[in-house]
Structure formats: C-alpha cells, structure tokens
Amino acid sequence: MAVFVAKQSLLLPLLLAVGFFAVAVSAGNFYESFDITWGDGRANIFDNGQLLTCTLDKISGSGFISKKEYLFGKIDMKLKLVAGNSAGTVAAYYLSSKGTTWDEIDFEFLGNLTGQPYTIHTNVYTGGKGDREMQFHLWFDPTADFHTYTIHWNPVNIIFLVDGVPIRVFKNNEKLGVLYPKNQPMKIYSSLWEADEWATQGGRVKIDWNNAPFKASYKNFNDQSSCSRRSNSTWVTCDPNNNSWMWTSLNAAEYGKMKWVQDEFMIYNYCTDFKRFPHGLPKEC
C-alpha cells in the first residue's frame, strides 16, 4: 500500500491518550493469542494451536476473545465458513472496546441456503453509534477453503480486505465532525451463533437444526503489524518510523480493485440509502 504522507509526530498524542503500546510479536498460535470464552466445549483448538473451530447446535453457539487489546493494527485471520445450508447462522469476527460509548470494527458472515451466496456484513461503530453497514457477496465460495479477512486500522483509515483485496475504506473524517476510533483499545472477538430472526434474507429463512452442528474454522492468525498490550501495566512505544502500516492508505491500483468489488459484489451501502436518511446522508458519505 502507498505510504500516506502525514506528520509522524501525530502518532504520539494518539497513543499517549491511552498509554504506550507494544509491537505485537505472536502470531498463529491460538493457545497463545486467544481464550475460548463460551460454548461449553463447542469451541476447540487443534494442531498444536494452529487451528481453532467454533460450532453451533440447538443448545448453544461458541466464541473466543484475544488475550491482547489493540490500538491500531493490520490483523489477518483465515476463516472457512459454515458449509451447506448455513441459513440463520452468523460467524462474527470483529474488534471492539468496552463501555457505553464503545468503538467497533465488524466483519459478520451471514449464512444462506445451500448454493446461495454468503453475505459479508461490515460496520464501524464510533462512540457507541454504528449504522454504517456495507454488505457484499463474494467472488468465491467461502465454505470450500480458507480465505484471509483483514482489518487494517490506523490513524488514517480503516481498510477491510478479503484475500488482500480491499472491499471497503472508512476514512478518518474528524475534520468533518465525524468520530473516528483512535483512543479506545479494542480486543478481537469471534463467535458462531444463531440469528435467524434477521440473518438470512431479512429473517425469512430460518435455521434448519437438522444440519447441526454447524462449524466455522480459523487459522493463520497474524497480528505482527499492530500495537497491543496484554495488561494495563505493560505498554511500550510503537515506533511510527518502523511501522509503515501505521500511515498507509490505498493507492490508485488498490482503489481500482475496491471499485471492482463494490461495482460487482456490493449489495447494500448505507451511503446511498436515501430512504433511511431522508434528512441527509451521514457526513462521511
């Protein structure tokens, strides 16, 4: 990605707002990087920490959370989604802070009937407010193999990528009065759960429990380009001179790839929903 021309001195006030951050060094091992938080045995780690699976049945779904929290990062995860009739299921993979005015960066994968396309649901929350949904189909079958889903979050922009192809950018538009997530550390969360009241075709297609248990798989987690901590007392400085990811945005070729995705595969964009915003679209649009 092209280096965004910015004063690197701007980074220090952003980091000092919440403390000092360490360059993450662990990657790939789920035992080291995550805690399984719910599901009563329905989420499990295999292959010496290299593979994690979440399952969903009629009794419960399952999920996990990162041991570290992050303030900016380029974070990759390979996922293989629920195969077959996945209608009514949601695999969520997102960053979130805590509190009533939380920040959040969302990937959610909405299942569908066998042979029908998955929907990727993306959203950005700032100060506890979201309503910034963009939804896409994919140019491949996300249940047949693992694919990489990336959240690239820095002081300039948030970039959502699939297999390295950008599908969405949320820019820092504080100059327009739009809140931007830059002060609240976030943890990584993921879960597989049942949401058939809304997930598939607006809730018209319900989950078929005859297909349970449903399973989503994860591998190749990578947070090496990030600023993170494991506890409130272990911050050290992220050096902006050594972290080009901290100041990057898309170049012209990458904008071209994103335009292709949005022209061919976007199915909803809040920035074009005039019925939803009759008094004017959000400022960032």
Rank of each mutant, 00 (worst) to 15 (best):
W153R: 11
N85M: 01
G99Y: 01
I120T: 15
F109N: 10
P155E: 01
E104S: 10
S97W: 13
L113T: 14
K175E: 14
D106C: 02
F109L: 10
F136P: 12
G88N: 08
K171C: 05
F160L: 12
Q135S: 13
N154P: 14
H147D: 11
Y93A: 03
A91D: 01
G130S: 08
Y118V: 08
H137D: 03
G99H: 10
A144L: 12
K171T: 12
F109W: 13
Y125V: 00
K129S: 14
Y93L: 14
V156K: 06
N85Q: 10
I158G: 02
W139N: 14
T100K: 15
Y118A: 07
L81E: 05
T126P: 05
V124R: 02
T148E: 13
E108S: 05
H152T: 01
V156G: 10
D106R: 12
F109S: 08
H147R: 13
G164R: 09
L138C: 12
W139S: 12
I151K: 13
I167F: 08
Y118L: 03
G111C: 05
L95T: 07
I151A: 02
K98T: 04
T122E: 00
A91Y: 11
R132M: 08
I105L: 15
H152V: 02
V156F: 00
A87E: 13
